[in-house]
């Protein structure tokens, strides 16, 4: 397992849509490094052939009927939107990223 470079921290922050000041990036990078150092211990556990657990208590998939259900009034959400255009949400324009 690897050490986190400042570039790694910036890359991860970008994936997470977080903008970090350089102080923050440095401090969080240090924290992450310490935590990753700690979790490194898992490497020593023999997990050969052990299936992963995603859900602690397995049971049959519940399925829903294909019946429309009346839910919330969308206006209750739109009314508290930071910006709207009619019944659409409005967000700043998307800039293409090369």
């Amino acid at each position: 397992m690897s050490k986190l470079s400042p570039e790694d921290v910036r890359h991860v922050a970008r994936l997470a849509a977080l903008r970090l000041s350089s102080d923050e990036a440095e401090a969080l990078g240090r924290d992450l490094h310490a935590i990753l150092d700690y979790v490194e211990q898992l490497a020593e556990v023999d997990t050969e052939g052990v299936p992963p657990t995603a859900h602690a208590i397995p049971f049959e998939t519940p399925l829903r009927q294909d019946t429309p259900v009346s839910s919330i009034d969308p206006e209750e959400v739109l009314a508290q939107a930071p910006a709207r255009a009619g019944t659409a949400f409005a967000v700043p324009k998307v800039l293409d990223e090369a």
Binding site: M1, V39, L42, A43, V45, T47, V50, P51, P52, T53, A54, A56
Partner: peptide
């Protein structure tokens, strides 16, 4: 694999 999947496997061992 090294982190998330490993943790899910260790989770099985804990169970």
């Amino acid at each position: 694999d090294a982190y998330y999947k490993k943790a899910q496997q260790v989770r099985t061992l804990l169970r």
